[in-house]
Amino acid sequence: MTTGKGKKSDPITWLEKYGDTLYRFARARVRDSFTAEDLVQETLLAAYRSRKNFSGRSTLKTWLIGILRHKIVDYYRKQKHEQVEENPDDFVYGSDDMFDAREKWKVKPGAWGKDPENEYERKELMTMIHACLDEMPNKMSQAITLRELQGVSTNELCELFQTGKNNCWVILYRARMLLRRCLEINWFQGQK
């Protein structure tokens, strides 16, 4: 280790400086604190092992987050193989029974009233969204987490789920339907 670079390539310093940032980033995406901790560790290890590749063109923080992003994608990829197929119909708010035989709305979308205005309400709404995601079948909540929170492209999402585009859109559609309905019931209806 050279003197000037010494501190810069010390993973303990990275942990101290960026540990929490990485942890939060991971937790918002995998929704489980133990997994998030593991991901932080794996990221720092991988970063340390490939520290020569850090060009200095990006900041250290963005470089680390870039590595973490890959780790998260890997995590989902691995999970896919371990996952037991769930039946989305087990979930209370299925999307098919939202329409009648003539494909018109049977369960009509309600008026949601005002958007949350202040910080407090937004926080509460976010908590509710997470509660809804927890209740949804794994695949659906993963689809939402990856696509909407992680900003993963649809292409990449299909790759992770190892499925064709059409199916991918249907998964996202059903997931959005479920989340929308869950919020309507648990958040907006109680608000009035």
Binding site: L15, G19, R27, A28, E37, L45, R122, K123
Partner: peptide, 21 residues
């Protein structure tokens, strides 16, 4: 997300990662 989740690494997790590093 970042505002909402103000969580930080627990001291135990931090220690564990530090040891590993």
């Amino acid at each position: 997300i970042e505002e909402i989740d103000s969580a930080s690494l627990s001291p135990e997790a931090r220690e564990k990662i530090k040891k590993r590093l």
